[in-house]
């Protein structure tokens, strides 16, 4: 202990800060060890929603593979995903050979799943009928507008766009948007903007008494928010770097 205190330099500026962050992440749960099949089916999904598959971070889940399936060719699997725009960050596995394969290529291993995830809803298929030329600009998703109170236990997600709530949001209600969130009634629930990682997203509310606000995974809970002098006021929440800024509207 003494030697440690001698080597410490207490007046040095901290080089880093560790922060907890919630990220929306796609999990690919493999049901069969069949690379060709995966390749074909992924190609079909990409054709449905090309925007979804552009450098999308991915966790490869091998823990739902039936035990009868043989050893997985992990580098091959990652190559297939990579070709379709999915970038593997980590695997989730329970079998010892899968874990060993991941360690061999220096890929992080996550523990097997709890029950926290839901199936991802892909954006609606873009091409129903074959169009001769692909659209140059991606179509703007219309803003989702909610006019009745959002009650505790309800969850509203504006996929690919903004969410506007004209009415009040109760404690225990959850607003999610890929873009910005506007609340014109009393805001007492949770608001998570830019959940796909858009750090430019903002939250606007007339009366900020939220349980939680989050932009691109950086969040503050009401215990912190309550200390803010702007608690209860009309504010906007924006992200700069990894700091959530709350400013008066």
């Amino acid at each position: 202990m003494q030697t440690m205190s001698q080597t410490q330099t207490p007046d040095q500026e901290p080089v880093f800060q560790l922060k907890g962050s919630m990220l929306a992440i796609t999990v690919l749960e493999l049901a069969q060890n069949n690379l060709e099949g995966l390749d074909r089916q992924l190609a079909a999904k990409v054709a449905q929603a090309p925007n979804f598959f552009s450098n999308t971070p991915l966790v490869l889940a091998l823990d739902k593979l039936p035990p009868s399936e043989g050893a997985v060719d992990l580098p091959g699997l990652m190559r297939v995903c990579r070709q379709h725009g999915l970038r593997t960050l980590a695997i989730r596995a329970s079998r010892i050979e899968d874990i060993a394969a991941a360690i061999a290529i220096d890929l992080p291993v996550l523990p097997p799943s709890g029950a926290r995830e839901r199936p991802v809803e892909l954006p609606e298929p873009v091409v129903e009928k074959k169009k001769p030329e692909p659209p140059a600009e991606p179509a703007v998703k219309p803003t989702k507008i909610i006019t009745s109170p959002v009650r505790g236990g309800q969850q509203i997600y504006a996929q690919g766009g903004d969410l506007v709530v004209i009415s009040s949001v109760s404690p225990g209600a959850e607003l999610l948007a890929d873009g910005n969130i506007h609340v014109y009634g009393a805001m007492r629930g949770r608001a998570l903007a830019g959940i796909k990682g858009n750090t430019k997203a903002r939250i606007f509310c007339q009366q900020m008494t939220a349980e939680l606000v989050s932009i691109a995974g950086q969040y503050k809970v009401s215990e912190d928010l309550r200390r803010d002098p702007l608690w209860g006021a009309g504010v906007q929440v924006s992200l700069s770097g990894d700091v959530l800024n709350i400013t008066r509207l």
Binding site: P149, R151, G153, P171, A173
Partner: peptide
């Protein structure tokens, strides 16, 4: 709170 849930 429970009434709010029920209203939802």
């Amino acid at each position: 709170r429970d009434s709010d849930r029920m209203l939802g």
